[in-house]
């Protein structure tokens, strides 16, 4: 017996909550990054390289990137569900979005741990 209910107010709560939590993580990172930029002023290559050489900076930036990917997935999917009525086109756009997010994350890891 399958008791799964696929309609109703609770369905999508996980996505909704994930979007909020990742938003808070990215907001905190943004404020920290602005503070770091203003206090350290990495205007030459050495300082720029040194900033992204710190372990905490790399991990925080990766956390931001993962949050962005998750957040963007929920947001882009919402946009497609609202405006793209053709099922095949919507599926194609969702697949492109997932491929783009995976590529962004792979690229970010490559940049941060070179």
């Amino acid at each position: 017996m399958v008791n799964r209910v696929v309609v109703g107010a609770h369905y999508g709560l996980g996505s909704w909550l994930a979007q909020r939590i990742t938003a808070v993580i990215m907001a905190i990172y943004t404020v920290i990054l602005l503070f770091v930029f203003m206090s350290r002023r990495p205007v030459d290559y050495g300082a720029w390289r040194a900033l992204f050489g710190y372990g905490w900076m790399r991990v925080a930036t990766l956390l931001f990137a993962v949050s962005l990917g998750w957040h963007a997935w929920v947001g882009m999917r919402d946009i497609f569900m609202d405006y793209v009525k053709h099922d095949g086109l919507r599926l194609a756009l969702e697949v492109i979005t997932i491929v783009a997010i995976a590529s962004y994350l792979g690229w970010a890891v490559q940049i941060l741990w070179r």
Binding site: Y45, W48, L68, M76, Y104
Partner: peptide, 16 residues
């Protein structure tokens, strides 16, 4: 999400 995330990754990549 697009294009700015990709553009910023390009700028970060090139500058580092």
């Amino acid at each position: 999400f697009f294009p700015f995330a990709a553009w910023l990754l390009y700028l970060l990549d090139t500058s580092l």
